[in-house]
Amino acid sequence: MRMTAIPARRARVTWSWYVRASTVQLIMYAVLIIGALIAMFPFIWMIITSFKSYGEVASGRFFPRELRWWNYIEAWNAAPFARYFMNSIFIAITTIVGDLVTGVLAAYAFARMEFPGRDTIFFLFLATLMVPGELTVLPNFLTIRWLGWYNTYQAQIIPFAASVFHIFLLRQFFMNIPRDYWDAALLDGCTHFRYLISVVVPLSRAAIVTVALLSFIGSWNAFLWPLIVTSSEKMRPIQVGLRSFVTEQATQTQLMMAAATMVIVPIIIFYLFTQKQFTQGIATTGLKG
């Protein structure tokens, strides 16, 4: 009797379990797919619109009759986009280099060197994390003006060539490198600088790439600060340039979409290539925070 009862019961349970499980699966995938569509729709719409004619935009037609590549050339020529891009690339690269040099040096000193007042200074560094950017924007603007840096590249680079948060991240990483390595290096007569360059930096490649990415995103997407400290098109980065294009060409939606595509697509491609490092970096910064 037992022998027959158990399979029968199991079959019933399995069947209802199966129905419930597949319903749950269905709902889960539906939520995920709807979420993905919402996340992507603005980009898809932007790219589609960038190929439309003025008439197609005005009439509210969803798909263009033909792909008007010409929109891109027209947008590119309507504003000094080449200059904006070059400015942004130059500012981003110099900011990353500066941020890494100051960050690695300071993080190493805080992690591995012994000097008086080290922990107090580090605490003072961390205290500045509390201060919101809004509070520092105005005084920094006056400082920049006082230094005679108004409307220059250095005004957009130097203030971001060191970051407490990045120093903190690098320091955490450096501290996890076993101290025995340093003791061994010291026996071989290695200096701090040699050790830093040939042992610490290669071992910390993941952390350094993360910091470089964070620095790049911050620099590339900067808007308020460059808007405030620049006055000429020659000095302005892409985000500020895009904004003036948006206000000047308010009626030419298809051209604005072409411009927005030119700004957004490179960074998306960049993200897709570096995304593993990227999400890892974001996740660790999140958990460490």
Binding site: A106, A109, M113, E114, R118, V131, T136, V164
Partner: peptide, 24 residues
């Protein structure tokens, strides 16, 4: 090492001092 330590943190300290600490 103490002197080296200060030299290592000097660049960051100047920038953070001028653009993060002083503005407060």
């Amino acid at each position: 090492e103490a002197v080296m330590g200060f030299i290592y943190i000097l660049p960051a300290t100047i920038i953070l001092g001028v653009f993060h600490f002083w503005p407060m």
